[in-house]
Simulated assay, not measured.
Amino acid sequence: MKSPRRTALIVIIILVVIGIAAGSFASHQIAQKRHQERIVATTYAVVQIADKLKLPLVGIPNTANKIPARYQNVTKIGNPMNPSAEKIASVKPTAVYSVTTLKDQFGKSFKQQHIKPYFLNLQSVSDLQHVVTKMGAQYDRQSEAKAANHEINQAVANAKQRANGRQRPRVLVLMGLPGAGYMIATNHSYVGNLVQLAGGQNVFASKDQEYIQPSDEAIQKARPQVILRLEHAMPEMVADQFNSEFKSQSFWRQTPAVQSKRVYDLQEPDFDATANMHAAKALDEVSQWLYPGSK
C-alpha cells in the first residue's frame, strides 16, 4: 500500500507536468496567433506605431520617409491619401489601419474588395497613447506599449516643468499646403496640442475645428510671439511658399515673432498633421522654442 507522502508527491508531479504542458500550449497558441496576423499600415504614422510595438506588417504605404529595417521588403500599397484596394487585398490582410483624418479617402473600391479599414484617432498626444495601449493589448505587446507611453509621459513632464511659473507665449501655428498657401492650425490640431502641452497659448482657438482660413487682419491683431510653420507634404515646395509669403506680405514683418526671429519650420518625420511616435521629441523641440534658455 502506497504511503500518503508518496501519493502526494505523485499528485504534485502530475500537476506540475500538466501546468508545464498547459503553459507550453498557451505559448504555442499565442505564437501561432502572432504568425497569423497580417497587418497593413496605410500611413507612415501607423508604420511607426507598428515598429514600436514590434508588429509584423504585410503592407506599408509609399513614403519618402525612412522605412524601419523590419519592413524593408514589405509590399507597398500606394499613397496614404489614395491607397490601392487591389494591392491591399492581394496580401490577404487580417487588419488594415489608417487614420480618422483620411476616412473619406476610402471609397467604393474597398467595399468591392471586402476590405473594412480600422481608423485610428491620432489627433492628439493622448489619443496616440490610447491607440498604443489598445493595440499593445490586442496584439500582446503590453510591455512595448508601456515603454513607448512612458517616453511620451516623460516628455510631457519635462515640458510642464520647463514652463512652470513662466509667462505663456502667444503662438501661431500654420500648416503649409503644396501649391495652395497655408491654413491656420487651432488648438484642436496635433501641433496645436503640442503647443498646449508645452505651455503655450494658441492665438487661434476653436471649439471643434482643426484648421481655419487665414486672415491677415486677425493675425496682425493676435501679435504672435512665436510662429510654427508645419511643412506638410512636399516640404521643399512648402518651405519656399512660406519664405515667399513672409517676404512679400509686409504685415508679417510687424509681428513680434518675426521681429525677434522666433519663426520655426516643422518637418517630417518629427512633425506631421497627425500624432506619431516622434511625439516625445517633437514636444521637447516645441517646449524649447517656447521657453528658450531653460533645461
Rank of each mutant, 00 (worst) to 15 (best):
A147K: 06
R262I: 06
A69Q: 09
H278E: 06
S244M: 10
I184M: 14
I115Y: 00
N73F: 13
D265F: 08
N276Q: 09
L266G: 11
Q142S: 07
F271I: 04
E37D: 12
D140K: 14
G192I: 06
E245D: 15
A180L: 10
A159Y: 12
Q167I: 12
A273S: 14
T94Y: 13
P61L: 02
N276M: 11
S294K: 15
P117K: 00
V286P: 00
P292R: 06
D208V: 15
P235N: 13
A185D: 14
P61D: 04
K76A: 11
R70F: 07
F251C: 04
A279F: 00
Q201Y: 14
A185G: 15
I219M: 12
N193Q: 13
K247T: 09
I88E: 01
F204A: 14
G19M: 03
Q259I: 09
S90T: 13
Q201A: 15
I152E: 03
G293S: 02
L174Y: 05
I12R: 04
S84M: 05
K221D: 06
G192N: 08
K111F: 00
I18F: 02
V195M: 07
V131E: 05
F242H: 12
R166P: 12
G199W: 09
S24E: 12
I49C: 11
V58F: 08
V46Q: 13
S143L: 01
Y291R: 11
V47W: 06
D208C: 10
K2E: 02
A137I: 05
M277L: 10
I20H: 00
R262M: 08
D265I: 05
L15T: 00
A85L: 03
H130N: 13
K103A: 13
G59V: 04
H28Y: 13
V173Y: 03
Q142H: 01
V258A: 04
N62I: 09
L122W: 01
G136I: 03
A280W: 01
P56M: 10
E210R: 15
Q259C: 10
I88P: 01
S287N: 09
N121R: 06
V125H: 02
K54S: 07
L230K: 09
A180R: 15
R141I: 01
K281F: 04
A137P: 01
S250W: 07
Y291C: 04
G107R: 00
S260M: 06
Q138S: 03
A147R: 04
Q209D: 15
G23N: 04
P56Q: 12
P117Y: 01
A218P: 12
N276T: 08
T274E: 11
H188W: 04
L197N: 01
K207I: 15
L120D: 06
K92W: 08
T75M: 11
P80R: 12
G192M: 05
S3R: 10
Q113L: 03
H28I: 06
H188F: 09
M135W: 10
K103W: 02
R38Q: 13
G176I: 08
